[in-house]
Design a protein around this nucleic acid. Structure first.
Lengths: 334, 334
DNA sequence: CAACAAAGAGTAAACGATTACATTCTACCA
DNA sequence: TGGTAGAATGTAATCGTTTACTCTTTGTTG
């Protein structure tokens, strides 16, 4: 192992000088500096990151808790996180939780053992009730997409209420009156926000919201398939189906098409997230674009502030969304 | 900060005893052990991971170099890596390279500064020619999917040659004679393997391979769209299009459908990877299933062996593939 | 020319753990 | 009863850096 001592001997100076030459060059004489650099080069020396970190007490790493890596929307967020982390000089530790509390706890405890300095979650589950009590303390934690109910951790999201309204306004303007909804977990805060937004438009239009028209409990393609099956059994078949993400919507689209139901002629479909492939299915999905990359990047900005104990100007960051009216939605069939 | 010294004072023992009680309990008397555990609990002590790592010289972390996080096939591999790493007690550092050598180099140098002990790449580009020369040494490195040409780093992949043959046999058995190919980077080894497999079948069948039928240079949905545009301009329109991954295939499917060309009646399409959504487009894609999760997990197994300086029984791990004959391929139009 | 500031470099003490070695104590056996 | 093995614990060195503190040298100013 080539350590700082070897370099110092090679350069004929003390280890302190080597360290200064590398980290704080202005403190050492130009000629010595050059000698040191020369020695560094010939020795092939790289400062031991572990050692510096132990000294500073900072690992310069952040953990990202992701329920599921295969979701391209999450991954886009993580790309943003990665970029932001890199710019701030942090590394990203991947915490694939698969939704298990045990794993979430494991990754989160990295904060307590100095393996990581902060945590970003793409879920709303941490810190959960049975979580390690030390972790419920004021650790640097930021939520993206979701917010933690009852706690006041900062979070980055978009105005899901407004987005819900936007989708529903769009459909209502096409004359739809009978809706189906395929959703994810009921515990999700953003689910309630979006639904509330949609309901607000419905009530303005004097349209009833029926509990039976809300089906589904998770987020994958199959949820869309099963959701459609359920919705088609309803006494009044919906003319528009709002899905809470693009995967669900693509599943729904698949099942409807398979049954010979034409989109959007017979039924309109909307998604959410604007994952890339949603623009390449037939027909392309009407959906809400979320600035996923930016959300990730902003999350890091906020987290870095917290880790540096800087004051946060606000706990809540709302990013803009955009309704993409594509071909999966159209005039209601009468 | 609660450190081992505080705990030792609280328990009325030396720091050595505390350390032993935690890491090597059999060396400590039961009663003392309990006292220590008690103190650990009341102090809320967690061993400082950085400090232990400095001592051992091992960071117990591995870096994963990914060209692109949004690809669900890569992400499935990474899920496998994550799982494997966790089981072996390693953490995963995310290295999103976006295909840039500079970034690859940055992440790879984590190995030299003790920030990580090993590296897994989902790409074939590292170590590239201009790479830091220290990195070209014998570092623990495993490639998944791709292999590094010219070097003998271990790699995990499937028999792409055979998979290429399987796809082509399938199409030939449907009577296809005129093919189009939409591919990714020419520098990719697996690309050549698959193409060679396909060509071998063609030559057995006495079918000519035309250079002009091979288009495309990257891996995304647009590559499929553009590829189709190009292929349709050919003097003899292909009756089957082989795409080198599912994203390309879905792009192709999208563009063909948009032009009113019916799949598979007019043209058959095949993909590769079996990403989840490929079974939920209309029609579902004929593709090759790769055991992505297992590939990731196996890569970690191999890497861990390397990091422990154990002997590798073999450098090359070939995993089984499966041809999924779905509805995007069918009898050739005559 | 005395006095003092500033620059440059070295010494040694941290950081928080682990562990080789030394020490103490008990128990057992000849 | 003396000797020894083994268990249990403490002391202090160590990992590779960083940095507070000290010392020397040089330059500046009244």
């Amino acid at each position: 192992m080539t350590n700082i001592k070897k370099v110092s001997e090679l350069a004929g100076v003390s280890t302190a000088t080597v360290s200064r030459a590398l980290k704080n060059p202005s403190l050492v004489n130009v000629k010595t500096r050059e000698k040191v650099m020369e020695a560094v080069k010939t020795a092939g020396y790289r400062p031991n990151w572990l050692a510096s970190s132990v000294k500073s007490g900072k690992s310069n790493s952040i953990v990202v808790l992701v329920p599921n890596l295969v979701n391209p929307f999450f991954m886009r967020i993580i790309e943003g996180i990665e970029k932001g982390a890199q710019e701030h000089g942090y590394s990203v530790l991947l915490g694939d939780t698969q939704g298990e509390h045990k794993r979430e706890n494991e990754y989160a405890s990295m904060l307590l053992s100095n393996r990581a300095d902060g945590l970003i979650q793409l879920d709303h589950s941490f810190p959960f009730s049975e979580a390690d009590e030390d972790l419920s303390k004021n650790v640097p934690l930021v939520s993206v997409c979701e917010r933690v109910t009852g706690k006041d951790y900062p979070y980055i999201e978009l105005d899901n209420y407004a987005a819900g309204r936007a989708i529903m306004n769009h459909l209502v303007s096409y004359g739809h009156e009978k809706f189906g909804f395929i959703a994810g977990q009921r515990s999700s805060q953003i689910f309630h926000d979006r639904l509330a937004g949609m309901k607000s438009v419905l009530s303005e239009e004097g349209i009833n919201f029926e509990e039976s028209s809300l089906v589904g409990e998770s987020y994958d393609l199959d949820t869309g398939v099963e959701g459609v099956k359920e919705l088609l059994k309803l006494p009044h078949r919906p003319t528009a189906i709002c899905c809470f993400n693009d995967d669900i919507a693509m599943g729904a689209l698949f099942e409807l098409t398979r049954r010979g139901i034409s989109i959007p002629k017979d039924i309109s479909i909307t998604g959410f997230d604007n994952v890339r492939v949603s623009g390449y299915v037939n027909p392309p999905l009407t959906t809400v674009d979320q600035p996923a990359f930016d959300m990730g990047k902003r999350a890091v900005d906020v987290l870095v502030k917290m880790m540096k104990n800087e004051e946060l100007t606000r706990k809540r960051e709302i990013l803009p969304f955009q309704l993409l009216e594509r071909e999966s939605s159209g005039p209601a069939k009468r």
